[in-house]
Design a protein around this nucleic acid. Sequence first.
DNA 1: GCCAACGTTGGC
DNA 2: GCCAACGTTGGC
Length: 138
Amino acid sequence: MAHWLYKSEPSTWSWDQQVAAGPAGTHWNGVRNHVAKKHLMAMEVGEQGFFYHSNEGKAVVGIVEVIRPYYPDDSDPTGRFGMVDLRAVAPLARAVTLEAIKAEPRLAAMILVNNSRLSVQPVSDDEWAIVRAMGGLC
DNA sequence: GCCAACGTTGGC
DNA sequence: GCCAACGTTGGC
């Protein structure tokens, strides 16, 4: 199964808010980028991803899971973009900062490091395992 | 269909 | 708060 990384500014949508949304989850809407859209469309229910705080915090803070596959984003007046639904699965025991990711040579190829502007990114199996371990999860 | 201008994102 | 990187828009 594929893994993903979702970026959000805490002032807009934080991990705490995601947790508060509970098992029913929330829409991951507002994506207005065609590369990010392509990733959203590829997602399947049950696939997990990292929740990353951009700008403020700059760290991976938790794990989320896709609970509804791609469907139209009703906040998009043009109808061109869609969204998925996500629920919080677990917090990391300790946040994995961008600084720590950049300091780990095995993570040098992560999109987060090389294209910081892409808001929804694929994460390789190796990267997934490494960041999880750095976050204190087995 | 090219490309300059502009707006937005996000690290620093 | 600055600025680099990137995406999008619109004139030609």
